[in-house]
């Protein structure tokens, strides 16, 4: 891939799938693009998706709002993979509501008035809504600096996104496991929201995925 002296990090038409994005890492300090944080996160994930510490180790002097924002973008993007798998199994007939444990029915916030969407619709609507919000020119006009008020919006997206994980975990376990094995996404997400205290611990209803120690179920939370 290295073109002699100059490395061009490009995916050229005709590249084999195994060569896609397979270029030498670029040091974060040398990234001069406005998308540097995204580049850096993706590069670290590609190196080893299981190495959560490395992936979530924020470079020095990095704006934390942007860091969290870019990570959430990456989560939502990778969650498309889970949604694709769920589409084949999670049917409106069987999963008529968005549930994880039987304690709560989650209402879909993508509609003008929150609605009791079937799980698959909840999943899709939540991801579509997140895509719109996170790309909104109003709240996130820049990818190098983010207003504090906009950073506050990340929390609700995280809470909803987490329900997709939990629905998959409790209702489509084989899909969840296969996906998790490949991507370590839920682990990374849990690590992320915990590290930055984005979601209250008691909402994280999934058992710890590594040691299988169940966390006490939540006491109350509903869609707002």
């Amino acid at each position: 891939m290295a073109d002699g002296v100059q490395i061009l990090r490009r995916n050229r038409p005709g590249f084999k799938a195994k060569d896609f994005c397979r270029w030498p890492d670029e040091p974060f300090e040398e990234m001069d693009s406005t998308l540097a944080v995204q580049q850096f996160i993706q590069q670290t994930i590609r190196r080893d998706p299981a190495n959560l510490e490395a992936i979530l180790k924020m470079p020095e002097a990095q704006d934390e709002g942007v860091w969290k924002y870019e990570h959430l973008r990456q989560f939502c993007m990778e969650l498309n993979g889970l949604a694709v798998r769920l589409q084949s199994e999670c049917k409106p007939e069987t999963c008529t509501q968005m549930t994880a444990t039987d304690q709560w029915i989650f209402l879909c916030a993508a509609h003008k008035t929150p609605k009791e969407c079937p799980a698959i619709d909840y999943t899709r609507h939540t991801l579509d809504g997140a895509a719109c919000l996170l790309n909104s020119n109003k709240y996130f006009p820049s990818r190098v600096s983010i207003k504090e008020s906009s950073v506050a919006k990340l929390g609700s997206v995280c809470r909803r996104v987490y329900r997709i994980f939990s629905h998959a975990y409790f209702h489509h376990r084989s899909i969840f496991d296969a996906f998790e094995k490949e991507t370590h996404l839920c682990k990374r997400f849990t690590y992320f929201v915990t590290k930055y205290s984005i979601i209250a611990k008691e909402i994280l209803i999934l058992p710890k995925l590594d040691d299988e120690t169940p966390i006490t179920p939540p006491v109350g939370e509903s869609e707002a």
Partner: peptide, 23 residues
């Protein structure tokens, strides 16, 4: 425009089925 706003065009539909980048 719901909570996101502005005059941006929002997509009408998102097609999900590919398991890798769409080229």
């Amino acid at each position: 425009a719901k909570k996101s706003a502005g005059l941006d065009v929002e997509p009408l539909y998102t097609f999900r089925a590919h398991t890798a980048p769409v080229l």
